[in-house]
Design a protein around this nucleic acid. Structure first.
Lengths: 139, 139
DNA sequence: ATTGCTGCAAACTCTTTGCAAGTTC
DNA sequence: GAACTTGCAAAGAGTTTGCAGCAAT
């Protein structure tokens, strides 16, 4: 059931391979939806009716610590999880709560160049997070 | 006690002028710290020992609805509140949980120009939120 | 055999809500 | 006096934690 990619990722990170864990990671990788813990649990329950949300949270925390996924906050309450490793930004539509990756190398380069030139006094930059807020066309 | 600016803002927004409300708004305007509801309550209790945090939240919600303040989320759990009206971005230091305004008209222009040129298919941009993540120099 | 994981429930943090009594306009 | 606000407590959402029993290495 568990695909090889998932097994490999878990092994590389020295995480024990359990059915729950592989299922959770598969959902995040395949859904590609920036799901919340609640979303993941709902989805898993289609095949696995009794998985507790506590187990989902514990695994998400581990995945975040290992760098397998990244937590993303929106203006909404719940934390969303992003499995993508390459540097990117996000589109967020508050009305629909849809959160999407926004890949744009030109933009990344633009910001890198900008902040390489313009230093901020007494502040060391680790990352730049850009959220493009808006809405999807309705027709 | 309540200063004229606060009174004016409340009147302009047709909010009734109560001691609690003016005190809350004064704290946000004067602290300039992007305080959380908890921060505001702690601070108010120096002079006003029994103010309930529920009252703080109710007023914050109203201020947000009226556009007097803007809620800002960081990677941390609690919501922070920003009274600044001019367009700006933020510096955030996760280690210290310090959130600061970052005013930079060149950056705003750079992003505006960029997104005026480069449209995103099926997406109407309402706002661009940029958080510069990093840490303050320790020496 | 050791170490780590699951399942369950309780607890915790942040925020919202309901409502009676009081205040503002 | 009509409409709104406060204070208080209870409840709600999202998340974390503790621990006994079980599974993976």
């Amino acid at each position: 059931m568990a695909n090889k990619k998932v097994i490999r990722i878990l092994a590389e990170n020295k995480l024990k391979i359990t059915p729950q864990r592989t299922a959770i990671l598969e959902v995040i990788l395949n859904l590609n939806n920036h799901p919340s813990a609640e979303d993941i649990t709902q989805y898993l329950r289609l095949n696995y009716p009794h998985i507790p949300i506590g187990t989902v949270y514990k695994n998400l925390d581990l995945f975040v610590k290992k760098g397998i996924i990244t937590p993303v906050r929106t203006s909404n309450e719940s934390m969303r999880y992003d499995p993508v490793k390459e540097k990117h930004h996000h589109l967020y539509a508050p009305d629909s709560d849809i959160l999407e990756d926004f890949f744009d190398d030109d933009l990344i380069k633009l910001l890198n160049d900008y902040f390489n030139r313009k230093k901020i006094p007494d502040f060391k930059i680790d990352d730049i997070k850009l959220q493009i807020i808006g809405r999807h066309d309705t027709k």
